[in-house]
Simulated assay, not measured.
Amino acid sequence: MKPQARRLSRELALQAIYSWQMTKNPVEQIELSIVTSNNMQKVDTEYFLELLRNVVKDCAELDKKMKPYLGRLPEELDPVEFAILRIATYELVARIDVPFKVVINEAIELAKSFGAEDSHKFVNGVLDKAIKTLRKDERS
């Protein structure tokens, strides 16, 4: 799959996870809305579905894994930053086939596109600390 297809998957997953965080609507409903309102031909749909379903399913565990690196309480995070960090944490933990540098770069790009002005700096800082534990073998 092309990198651009993965990037689009992450963008749609971010939108869907943000929507889920804000509305608490069933993930299936949000998934259907995203899939039917977007052109999915250039998207790695399988990856989008994996990110969305697993981040929602495992959010408590993902939050626990990222919490030590936040410098504030998770409920104090901007919802967009929170969704980005959940996606990146999932990828760091569950998708070891994706190099940590790619995970961090993609999260930074999402933060630049969708987050507040300096969100990318916060996201970068959190993930830079997190990889030392979550991907210690890859960092060595």
Rank of each mutant, 00 (worst) to 15 (best):
V98H: 02
K132S: 05
L77F: 03
A88K: 00
Y18E: 08
D78R: 09
P68I: 06
I96P: 01
E31A: 10
E61A: 15
L77M: 14
W20K: 12
I87G: 00
T45L: 11
V123K: 01
D128N: 03
L51D: 06
R6C: 03
F82G: 10
C59R: 15
E11N: 10
L8E: 15
V35D: 05
N54G: 03
L127C: 00
K42S: 14
K132C: 09
V126W: 00
S9V: 00
R139I: 12
R6V: 13
R86Y: 03
T23F: 04
K129I: 01
I30M: 05
V35N: 01
R135N: 05
K42Q: 15
I96V: 10
I30A: 08
R86L: 15
A130P: 01
N124Y: 04
N105L: 08
S113Q: 13
Q21T: 07
K132H: 12
A88Q: 00
L32I: 12
R6Q: 11
R7M: 08
K112I: 12
V56D: 05
E138T: 06
W20R: 10
E117A: 13
R72V: 14
V102I: 13
I87Y: 04
Y47Q: 09
I34G: 05
E81M: 07
A88C: 01
L70K: 04
Q4C: 05
V80L: 06
P74I: 10
V80F: 08
K101N: 09
F122K: 11
R86K: 11
R139C: 09
M40P: 04
Y90N: 02
D97L: 05
A116M: 08
G71F: 04
R139H: 09
N54L: 11
F82Q: 09
A5W: 02
E11I: 09
V56S: 02
A94T: 08
K64W: 13
F114N: 10
L110M: 10
V103L: 03
Q21D: 08
V27G: 02
E91P: 00
K2P: 11
I108W: 00
A60I: 05
K112M: 11
I84G: 03
K57I: 05
E109Q: 14
A16G: 06
K64R: 13
P26Q: 13
N105W: 02
V93Y: 08
R72G: 02
L8R: 11
E138L: 06
I87W: 00
V126A: 04
P3D: 13
L73C: 08
D97R: 06
L32E: 14
D78A: 06
S140A: 10
V93E: 09
R10E: 10
R53M: 11
E50N: 10
V35H: 01
I96R: 13
K112Q: 14
K64T: 12
I108C: 02
Q21V: 09
Q15T: 07
R72P: 04
N105E: 11
D58T: 09
F122R: 11
A5E: 10
L127E: 02
D97N: 10
V27M: 04
T133V: 12
V27A: 14
V55E: 04
G125C: 02
L110A: 08
N38P: 02
K121W: 05
Q15G: 14
M66C: 05
L12S: 12
E61D: 13
V35Y: 03
F100D: 03
I104H: 03
L85H: 01
